[in-house]
Design a protein around this nucleic acid. Structure first.
Ligand SMILES: [Mn+2]
Ligand SMILES: [Mn+2]
Ligand SMILES: [Zn+2]
Ligand SMILES: [Zn+2]
Lengths: 133, 133
DNA sequence: TTCTAATTGCAAATGGTTTGCATTGCTTGT
DNA sequence: ACAAGCAATGCAAACCATTTGCAATTAGAA
């Protein structure tokens, strides 16, 4: 996704496109896995404060730029959402291997329940083929 | 699920069936929704310490007696698992309405990914029909 | 460039969860 | 019934992710 896309979203929302926000965006774009706050902060050390990373990620969530991914590690992870897309994962708790599963039940659940779904999580944890032995 | 079922599990695991553990079990059995630690503790006040509630719930998780439910509230919820069963939910963030969705992708994901899945979360948050307007 | 509200950095606070340790309570063997 | 040994508890302190107050800085409109 182009940087200009996210700048547009912020402009439309009437918030400033600041240095910390660009840095967090860069970090998330460079990553190929959902990042924790600590990981984002590490990729941005001495450029943006930890509190700013938190505030930025929360803002991005409100703006629909990032999505929270729950791996049950005791903290959250975040990934960019590109044009209405997002992923769901299966994680090996032994070796950390992460696989994308191409399923999303959003539409099905909206129809089935008559809810307007605003967010959802659907993540699996277990042992990959190698680690299961 | 019968209390004896859970007692058996604890016996097999070689852990004691103590008063706090019975209290937490009772609270979870009486509940018709996943409970937070705070809610369990409230239902058990002056009978079991908060730390014991935490320790008990963690033990029950290890024993496969309870399952963590993630509603993204900033803390965890727990529900009893009866004989290989568990639920997935859609939650209205406005009025708190909770609906059970009768879908589980465990088997499908295990086959698709060749992982041995040990835990998973699949919860949806949004607005129910009344609250969406 | 100037001006001002939005944003940041830093430090302190918060809140859920875990942990250390002395005490209590089972359980087993005598 | 008693004692010994180990497990589990209560209480307080620690931990750690996240939030917040506030003074200083900065984006971006005028
Ligand atoms: Mn989805
Ligand atoms: Mn399931
Ligand atoms: Zn693995
Ligand atoms: Zn509702």
């Amino acid at each position: 996704m182009l940087m200009s896309h996210y700048i547009d979203i912020m402009k439309k929302a009437g918030v400033k496109f600041t240095r910390p926000r660009k840095l967090v965006l860069d970090a998330l774009q460079a990553a190929k896995q959902p990042l924790s706050i600590k990981e984002i902060h590490k990729r941005v050390r001495n450029k943006a404060d930890l509190a700013s990373v938190y505030r930025t990620v929360n803002l991005f969530q409100d703006l629909g730029i990032v999505r929270e991914v729950q791996f049950g590690e005791g903290y959250q992870r975040y990934e960019l959402i590109g044009e209405g897309q997002h992923h769901h994962y299966v994680l090996c708790i032994e070796c950390g291997k992460l696989e994308d599963i191409d399923i999303c039940l959003l539409d099905r659940v909206e129809k089935m329940t008559n809810f307007k779904i605003l967010s959802h999580s659907m993540e699996f944890q277990g042992l990959c083929h190698s680690c299961a032995g």
